[in-house]
Simulated assay, not measured.
Amino acid sequence: MAVAAALLIPAGAAVAAPAASASSAASAADGAKTEVTISSVDLDGPAISSVDVTVKNAGPQRLRSLRVTFAGPTGWAVQPSLKHVDGSLATGASATTTFRIQVPEKRDGFVIRTFKATATYTGGDGMGSATGTRSERSGEPRANLAAAYNGVAITDESATTAGNYDGEGNSFSAQKLAAVGLTPGASVSALGATLTWPDVAAGTTDNVASSGQAITLSGKGSKLVFLGSGVGSSATGSSTVYYTDGTTTTGSFGFPNWSFDPVTAHGATLVKSTDGRNRQDGYGNATVKYSVFAHSVPLDPSKTVDFVVLPANADVHLFDMAIAP
């Protein structure tokens, strides 16, 4: 993170009061450990916000030589970046330090910002350091995957010019998809999940070229299944699942190119293949297979999914996603 040597407060800028602390404690495999918590951060900029970092000595020894650092997203100036805490902390005692962070103008749409504080010390739990993080969000994820559709993958053979699945004006044939059971709104079973083929007319937006969109999804299960295919042979990325308790898991997956790649590339599973594709000049390439695949990332089955952040790779194209038991 870029840290400014001096924090300038623009004329008329609001100075936000610190909010109540919320726990994001450091943890270890066993025993009581030093806890680091960060107070809430107001993202409604431009403003200078005060942020409290609290360190609690949960270890068996007196904690000494405490130093605390705090950092926000890249480019957000913090003053000071490091604070020394005088004296020592008995077992169970806490010390709070206050930092100021320059919050830029609020962005439109859904944004997640992550903040990190690190304490270094002697004594206490004997570990020498502990870290706490806090994520703040503004805006709301898209209501569902259909709300994020941004491309036309399926066209009728009599009207192909709206299609541009691959960036070269090509698309799946609605007729050939129907021949293998992929009609608008059709149920698709894959990897233990029940998914839905886009329930839209041919020649309209029907898929998501993935670029880190946040999509609302609710439920519990063992894995999150994606239905789609790749454009090019590098259609891979990581997806982060956010749960209702604020925790996350991240998994990687990928799809083969919609044609020519081995159908098991990137560990994907073939769902359906069609003959040929629609081009700008009509249906063609009848001897070539164009395919749809499934892949999955694991979930924590004990937790309820809140929303999903898609991979930041527009070569990954998605028709649906669903939770498998």
Rank of each mutant, 00 (worst) to 15 (best):
residue 181 G to P: 04
residue 226 F to W: 14
residue 88 S to W: 11
residue 1 M to A: 10
residue 302 S to E: 11
residue 260 F to R: 02
residue 200 V to N: 05
residue 100 R to Q: 15
residue 66 L to S: 08
residue 19 A to V: 05
residue 129 S to H: 11
residue 139 G to P: 00
residue 95 A to Y: 07
residue 285 N to T: 13
residue 58 A to Y: 02
residue 133 T to W: 08
residue 193 A to G: 11
residue 208 V to P: 02
residue 319 F to C: 02
residue 260 F to P: 00
residue 117 A to K: 06
residue 192 G to Y: 12
residue 314 A to W: 05
residue 22 A to Q: 12
residue 49 S to P: 04
residue 154 I to L: 04
residue 240 T to R: 09
residue 268 A to K: 15
residue 58 A to Q: 09
residue 68 V to T: 12
residue 299 L to A: 01
residue 77 A to V: 06
residue 30 D to F: 09
residue 278 N to K: 03
residue 89 L to E: 02
residue 306 D to Y: 03
residue 202 A to R: 06
residue 255 F to T: 13
residue 275 D to M: 12
residue 226 F to Y: 15
residue 205 T to F: 10
residue 94 S to Y: 11
residue 319 F to E: 01
residue 61 Q to C: 03
residue 323 I to G: 03
residue 64 R to Y: 07
residue 69 T to Y: 06
residue 125 D to W: 01
residue 24 S to Q: 09
residue 187 S to M: 07
residue 41 V to Y: 03
residue 265 A to W: 12
residue 86 D to A: 15
residue 15 V to C: 11
residue 247 T to N: 14
residue 35 E to H: 09
residue 294 A to Q: 09
residue 40 S to L: 14
residue 141 P to V: 05
residue 2 A to H: 05
residue 290 Y to E: 01
residue 42 D to F: 02
residue 260 F to N: 04
residue 183 T to G: 04
residue 40 S to K: 15
residue 196 T to Y: 03
residue 285 N to H: 13
residue 270 L to N: 12
residue 10 P to V: 01
residue 60 P to M: 04
residue 143 A to C: 08
residue 38 I to N: 04
residue 183 T to V: 15
residue 65 S to R: 14
residue 218 S to L: 08
residue 62 R to K: 12
residue 78 V to Y: 09
residue 170 N to S: 11
residue 189 S to H: 14
residue 199 D to L: 06
residue 258 W to S: 04
residue 190 A to S: 14
residue 319 F to S: 06
residue 267 G to M: 12
residue 135 S to W: 09
residue 121 Y to H: 08
residue 51 V to E: 00
residue 288 V to R: 07
residue 237 G to M: 07
residue 210 S to A: 15
residue 271 V to E: 00
residue 186 A to C: 14
residue 313 N to C: 03
residue 63 L to I: 08
residue 212 G to Q: 09
residue 141 P to L: 06
residue 318 L to M: 03
residue 155 T to Y: 12
residue 138 S to G: 11
residue 60 P to N: 06
residue 205 T to M: 10
residue 166 D to Y: 02
residue 153 A to W: 01
residue 42 D to R: 08
residue 287 T to Y: 04
residue 1 M to E: 08
residue 254 G to P: 00
residue 77 A to I: 06
residue 46 P to S: 10
residue 235 A to H: 02
residue 12 G to M: 01
residue 20 A to I: 00
